[in-house]
Simulated assay, not measured.
Amino acid sequence: MLFSRRFGAFPERAIQSFENFRHPRALAAALLGAALGLTACDPGETGDEPEQDINAVDVTVTAAMDAVNGGSGAVAFVPNAETPWAGLIVAAPLDGGLDIFNVDGEALERVTGPRLNSLAVSPGFALRGESLPLIVGVDGSSGTVRGYVLVRSEPTAIEAPLAPIEPEGGASAVCFIDEAPGHLDIAVLGREARVTTWRIRDTGGDLIGAEQTGSYALPAPARTCASFQDELYVAGPTLSVTRINASGAVEARGAPSAQSLSAGILLGRPVVIATGGTTGGLALLDGRDLSVLQNLQIVDGMSTPGVEDPAFVAMTTESYGGTAYQSGIVAVVDGTDDRIRFIARETFARALSPNAGPDSLGG
């Protein structure tokens, strides 16, 4: 089932728990009748325009990561600005901890720990005078925010003494906002309908400091988020994909729901990649009004299977070296086998413009 250009809010009979999104194809079938004919105007309103389906464009997979025991969930990038081909990828195994991969797809290390349902990474976090990647995730079972320092030379990750980040009611997910010399900014989705923003920095004490910098009410609880520049994108089981500005105001709403979001820039325009949710598919949304630019189907490469059931997604504009990844990578976890696939960002851009090249991508 494809994303459509215009959606409204689902009726109550169509709302199901977010846990069902782990297998979105079954959910999509149940919601098909409810989704047909719905439209979207201003946030929270419905209109009379008919739905317009957009045929999916084929995007060829570039590579696949090693299959790992238990499979992969959330995924994030740890680029290396000095040596792009030495950049790493981290994933949250479905049975807990962290998996570390290299850009060739090899599984290098598994670190034990709780299952993390989302990840945010600062590649160059300043810690005790050193520049070390900091990984932040949410333990979905306890609603706590955990931190890990990544040691590139091993490679391995060590749990960091992070000061408590405790939104009221507990945390449901986390996403990267920004990093600058000396600090990392993140957004934390609460289990209730609220998002808080935090600044993490090393203050020299026993714990890595965490200061709350903002708090905004949401129209409904969110379970996934992404950011680009000053915009935050959120979605949940009863919350359509929503763009929030730096003041916490809702600026736009799009597809009825999504399991995973990633935001960035393609061909000079802000975009959001949305997976799962009520559609069971993958779509490229305009980052401004959240209209659907293109539905996508990731198909088989020469020796690599495509993606049948897009679950989690992450995009980086940082170079990972080589011909394929110099302009960045899109990573998609296939819910069918819980294995990570890579698509060169340049290939992804060609879904919007067949003549797109590295110089036209933006970054």
Rank of each mutant, 00 (worst) to 15 (best):
F3T: 08
S4R: 09
F10I: 04
S17L: 10
H23Q: 12
H23M: 10
P24V: 01
P24Y: 00
A34I: 00
L36S: 09
C41H: 11
G44S: 13
G44W: 13
T46D: 14
G47M: 11
E49W: 07
A56V: 09
T60R: 13
T62H: 04
A64G: 10
A67C: 06
G73A: 06
V75S: 04
V78K: 11
P79D: 03
E82D: 14
W85L: 11
L88S: 06
A91H: 03
L98Y: 02
L98I: 12
D99Y: 14
N102A: 10
G105Q: 12
G113A: 08
V121M: 06
S122Q: 07
P123I: 11
G124R: 15
L127N: 11
R128E: 08
L132N: 09
L132Y: 05
P133F: 11
D139N: 15
S141L: 13
G143M: 08
V145S: 05
R146I: 12
V149N: 03
L150P: 15
V151N: 10
R152T: 10
R152N: 09
T156C: 13
P164M: 06
I165W: 13
I165Q: 04
E168I: 06
G169L: 09
G170Y: 11
S172R: 08
I177D: 01
D178P: 00
P181L: 01
D185I: 06
L189N: 04
G190E: 05
E192I: 11
A193Y: 08
A193S: 11
R194E: 15
R194T: 14
T196F: 05
I208G: 09
R223D: 12
R223E: 13
A226C: 11
F228I: 07
D230P: 00
E231S: 15
S240T: 09
T242G: 04
T242S: 15
A249W: 05
A249V: 08
V250R: 12
A252K: 06
R253M: 15
R253A: 12
Q259T: 14
L266P: 00
L267N: 03
R269T: 09
A274G: 01
T278K: 01
T279F: 03
A283T: 09
A283Q: 02
L285N: 02
G287A: 08
Q294H: 03
G306N: 12
G306A: 10
D309K: 04
T316Q: 02
E318A: 15
S319I: 03
Y320D: 00
G322A: 04
G322R: 09
Y325S: 01
V330C: 13
V330M: 15
A331S: 10
D334H: 03
D337V: 10
R339N: 04
R339H: 02
R341D: 00
R341V: 01
I343W: 04
I343P: 01
A344M: 07
T347E: 03
F348S: 00
P358I: 15
G362M: 08
